[in-house]
Design a protein around this nucleic acid. Structure first.
Length: 204
DNA sequence: TGCCAGGCCCTCTTTAGGGCCTT
């Protein structure tokens, strides 16, 4: 099995808190699969973490304990999600957050993934230099991306992250000589200091 | 009982501090 460079899975977790190291678990996963700039598949499921979530998380996400009670357990959902990911590369808004939960949840079931993570937050900070801030909802507004749904639900946030990503790829594409933006380049952008971005893009 | 995230990035920086972003 080898890495599929043309396919990208954009994912978003809702969780019981900020840190799996403190016992927090995923409570919802939403994801879309992008191929050649088109969304070709989606994945969404609540999952029961095995304990009650607090009222802050209920209010923040709109996901409540009654909904989670009837949801399948994390290990079932994550096994299906691992199949959905396959060998694709991965993308999330503030990827370090979703990566640590993906790693923790897959570790619980002894599974792994092959793809590399990209982060739309790190790219946005370098590309959308005039945005008021780089929260997902702000950027969706800033870029005038059509949106109908609720932020802080996994599938909607994944869909919005995907739209934002494609929009940023367009912006980058207009600044480089290549006809498309290779994954290698977005990884480079995310690691390059903001002031060096124009030089980096000019070289592509 | 008391504790409670962590990586990135800027700057009044590097012998550090604090805001941003994710739930």
């Amino acid at each position: 099995m080898h890495n599929n460079a043309n396919s990208l899975v954009v994912l978003d977790f809702e969780t019981s808190g900020l840190s799996p190291d403190n016992g927090d678990r995923a409570i919802e996963i939403g994801a879309v699969k992008i191929n050649n700039g088109v969304i070709i598949d989606t994945f969404q499921s609540l999952m029961n973490p095995g304990f009650r979530i607090n009222s802050f998380i209920e209010n923040y996400t709109g996901i409540n304990n009654r909904m989670l009670q009837s949801a399948p357990p994390c290990h079932e959902v994550m096994a299906e999600f691992a199949d959905f990911i396959g060998s694709d590369n991965l993308l999330a808004h503030n990827a370090s957050f979703d990566k640590k939960f993906l790693d923790a949840e897959l570790n619980h079931i002894g599974q792994n993934y092959l793809g590399e993570f990209a982060c739309s937050l790190l790219v946005s900070r370098r590309i959308n230099i005039n945005a008021p801030n780089h929260q997902l909802s702000t950027l969706v507004n800033y870029k005038n991306l059509a949106s109908e749904g609720s932020f802080h639900r996994a599938l909607f946030d994944a869909q919005m992250t995907a739209k934002l990503w494609l929009c940023m790829l367009d912006d980058i594409e207009n600044q480089i000589k290549h006809e498309y933006v290779p994954f290698e380049l977005v990884k480079r952008i995310a690691k390059t200091p903001k002031k060096n971005i124009p030089t980096l893009l000019a070289k592509w």
